[in-house]
Amino acid sequence: MRKRIPVIENILSANDQLARENRKKLDQAGVFSLNFMASPGAGKTSLIEHIIKGLSGKVRLAVIDGDVATSIDADRAQAAGAVAVQINTGGECHLDAVMISGALPQLDLTQIDLLIVENVGNLICPSSFQLGTHKSVLIASIPEGDDKPYKYPAMYRGVEALVINKIDLLPYIPFDMEYFRRGVEVLNPGLITFPLSCQTGEGIEDWIAWVASQVNISTYQFEH
């Protein structure tokens, strides 16, 4: 006998459930967490290095680095002074809640205030997989071009902050900021945006102050 069984369940509901468990673990330990997403080469790791230096001595920071291969990024985060765990996804184009769940026990969460998860460089897949992190940040960069919000709408919709890196290259590259921002505004109205350059340091201060404010350090003052 043939029978139709209604399901009506999100296909990634198992991942979402595990993401909620990850969040619970982080909340219980008092860890605030950010998920960094970007295309390869946008500057995720450089930005993390700036945060590690800028918040050194004020915030206890750990990084979970996701890459298809190598531990280059975790090594860089470690060299900058953070506790770092590398996840090699072995071909997978994104991190998912299962991988984060496997990485969390490698960290002493009671000794961490801020956990940054550096997702695999990719503007498509990471946006579909919840990890359990508190907020997501997208790092765009000038050389990628001003049409990216239009081409990767899901990525731009699902984030709570946007960094526009490499603004020092604006004089050399045709990038219509108005067109870019208009695309962002439709997808994610009022999104907080940080134009900056990891290379020259321009705009970094505001960005680090935002990160710090998210970790809720009321006494925090950025040192010039």
């Binding site: 043939r2 139709r4 069984i5 399901v7 009506i8 999100n10 579909s128």
Partner: peptide, 11 residues
């Protein structure tokens, strides 16, 4: 939308 609406089974 990104969901499984229904399945059909035989038994």
């Amino acid at each position: 939308e990104f969901r499984l609406e229904a399945i059909e089974i035989e038994n």
